[in-house]
């Protein structure tokens, strides 16, 4: 029993970690397309851009539900502490997602596509920014007393969270641009290739800023990275990140189609790994660990059994649908 209560939360933390990582990547390029919408010349180009994600967006956002519900299932006390603390950014994110989600369908039925293109772009940008705020709000810490959040409605609003919000817009912009370069042709692909470079530079600037700021602001994060022997194991993380960034740039310059997207995904995963390393085992830094917020073993096992069956199935048919809609979306192709 003792060891089960030790390991089950670890397994669940890993599962939720994977779900959140999948969400960030899958909905990342999806939101990225909304971020890139204002740069398109006309609605025909926007049709082409949207068409590359239209069959997938719904499934992509389901990973966000899995992240939220997964937290509720496995770490209900963390869910209950985080949501009230980050109430406003979470709700703004949800409302922004409402507008960009319905825009997929409304845009095609509407007389003029302009209005819903605007809603799609604004919703995507605002949702990305809010997700950055949520992420930053978590990393900078939430005050919890007796399992409940204590603090005001705007405690999350700091220069750091705003930095994280902008960082996520840049990151999703990079994912979106490299995705479009891979999945489209003609002018959209060419412009995406040009823009990918700028987004990459922005991502690296933001990553550097977050990497410098967090250890300076949070002694526990500095201790995690720079104390010995941790440093011996962790120094490759920034080095690999630099190498991947260089490779991403190189492949974009060479006009390669798939590798820049994969490199952008790898950059995201490395940044994500960095945040996990900085904060583990806190799930509500610096107040609660995964063990303190964990659901009872009976709940975690009941859900784990189903997950071991269902998650591989889900991954299987998600991959099938991506395979079904493989290949490029050509300029001028109709929407439905």
């Amino acid at each position: 029993m003792e060891s089960m209560e030790m390991y089950l939360p670890l397994i669940w933390a890993a599962l939720i970690g994977v779900a959140v990582a999948l969400y960030i990547i899958l909905d990342g390029f999806d939101l990225g397309i909304g971020i890139l919408f204002p740069f398109a010349r006309n609605e025909t180009e926007r049709d082409q851009m949207m068409r590359t994600v239209a069959p997938f967006w719904d499934g992509n956002e389901t990973w966000l539900i899995l992240g939220g519900v997964g937290l509720f299932v496995a770490f209900p006390r963390a869910y209950a502490a985080i949501m009230p603390a980050l109430y406003l950014p979470v709700i703004v994110m949800l409302v922004a997602l409402v507008f960009r989600g319905v825009a997929f369908e409304f845009r095609t039925v509407s007389h003029s596509k302009k209005g819903w293109s605007f809603a799609f772009a604004l919703g995507s940008i605002l949702a990305s920014f809010s997700q950055g705020l949520v992420l930053g709000g978590l990393v900078q810490g939430i005050n919890v007393v007796n399992g409940q959040y204590v603090g005001g409605s705007f405690d999350w609003l700091t220069p750091f969270t705003v930095l994280c919000g902008l960082a996520l817009i840049a990151g999703y912009g990079l994912l979106g641009a490299t995705w479009l370069h891979m999945k489209t042709d003609a002018e959209v692909a060419a412009r995406s290739q040009r823009q990918a470079r700028y987004w990459l530079v922005a991502v690296l600037v933001f990553m550097a800023a977050v990497s410098l700021y967090t250890p300076l602001a949070e002694p526990r994060i500095a201790a995690r990275w720079f104390s010995l022997p941790n440093f011996y194991f962790l120094w490759p993380v920034p080095v690999v990140t630099a190498l991947v960034a260089f490779a991403c740039w190189y492949w974009i310059e060479r006009g390669r189609e798939v590798p820049p997207f994969l490199a952008a995904v790898a950059l995201f995963l490395l940044g994500y790994a960095g945040l996990v390393i900085s904060n583990f085992p806190y799930i509500v830094p610096p107040s609660l660990t995964i063990w303190e917020t964990s659901a009872s073993p009976g709940s975690q096992i009941f859900m784990l059994i189903g997950t071991l069956f269902l998650l591989p199935m889900v991954l299987g048919y998600v991959i099938f649908v991506y395979w079904l809609f493989r290949g490029k979306v050509h300029a001028g192709e109709s929407y439905h």
Binding site: V73, A74, M303
Partner: peptide, 12 residues
């Protein structure tokens, strides 16, 4: 959450 959570988890 220990009781309701998994029901929602299965829904997802």
């Amino acid at each position: 959450g220990d009781v309701i959570g998994p029901l929602l988890g299965y829904e997802v």
